[in-house]
Design a binder for these strands. Structure first.
Lengths: 185, 185
DNA sequence: GTCTATATGCGGATAGAC
DNA sequence: GTCTATCCGCATATAGAC
């Protein structure tokens, strides 16, 4: 077995994902990914033109997994309950897979050029809010909710809440937003 | 003038701040900072034990400047107006000095060991909310607001809002939170 | 107190053999 | 399609001369 390893793009992506979640985005290197596959770094260039391309694939994967997870955890037919489920699931994903979550969210997406996976996530949020407010394209509500959820994930992850308990703040904010969407301005 | 440059810790910190804001945190290096001062990198070690110490000083500076700026822009005596001013000023700081803002916010603060500067910022938020809800230590409200503000800053900076206009979402979320704080749960 | 020189390590990427 | 060998650049940090 001199060199019959036979890679695939999907295999490399899987290894990259594992490396990301285990060692953090700061330590994500082509050398490390290759090593974890029992292969040398230059081989990767036959499947991805450069590191940036591999990173783009990782971001798409993150979007897809976040969306799938969140959708699976949002099953209730009551709009308010479903909304709370969605919010809770989103935060839980950020907590359980912080490296993937923050890597996915912390990269510039040039203008409106959102990826398919990113769009699907956005649409999931819009649908949940649409059931709540009656407006199927209530972007301002979606922006507000997304900002709250993401901001909470960041501050929670960075340990800034201390012992004061982030949970009360999460529910307080969530209920306030819910109430704000019930009454139209 | 072979080597009579006479540095000071404050001078180095100022140069580091300039470098951070001009080149981004990814490119913040001791070599670069030293070069901008007409000095060689090893000289810095006489004023800061290592790079991490210099970064801690930068974070404290970021907290202080964010707090000063926000406080200066919050002058109204009416609690609701003052709250809107605070929120708007916070976001404006993040927009005008994104590198400093995100560098300050994106570093782990171990547990409750918050810096003095960070505490003062937190207290500013608590005071504004206290005037609003009557509870001088309403941490859950502060957590909710901070999460919303920071999340909005992140998503705004990453260009994820596209043309749909983030402004409406910002005001929508802000008013919802305000309404939620008016009515106690 | 600043310098030169250097140790040591990381990373992306390419050329060319097999 | 994978390899070896290498180029090139970046960085933090230290030792010791001046």
């Amino acid at each position: 077995m001199a060199h019959p390893k036979q890679l695939e793009a999907a295999t490399i992506l899987g290894a990259a994902l594992r490396m990301l979640e285990e060692n953090g985005s700061e330590n994500l290197s082509l050398r490390g990914i290759a090593k974890s596959l029992g292969v040398k770094a230059p081989s990767i260039y036959h499947y991805f033109p450069d590191k940036a391309a591999l990173e783009r694939a990782l971001i798409a994967e993150g979007h897809a997994q976040l969306r799938d997870w969140t959708r699976r955890q949002t099953r209730s037919t009551d709009p308010e309950t479903a909304f709370r489920e969605l919010a809770g699931a989103y935060l839980k994903f950020a907590r359980k897979r912080p490296e993937l979550y923050f890597f996915t969210m912390s990269h510039q997406t040039p203008g409106g050029d959102r990826t398919d996976a990113g769009k699907k996530l956005w649409n999931l949020l819009l649908a949940s809010l649409g059931a709540l407010t009656g407006d199927p394209d209530d972007t301002s509500a979606a922006v507000a909710v997304w900002a709250f959820l993401h901001g909470f994930a960041v501050l929670d992850h960075s340990g800034r809440f201390g012992k004061s308990g982030p949970k009360a703040g999460f529910e307080r904010g969530l209920e306030a937003l819910l109430a704000g969407f019930r009454v139209r301005y």
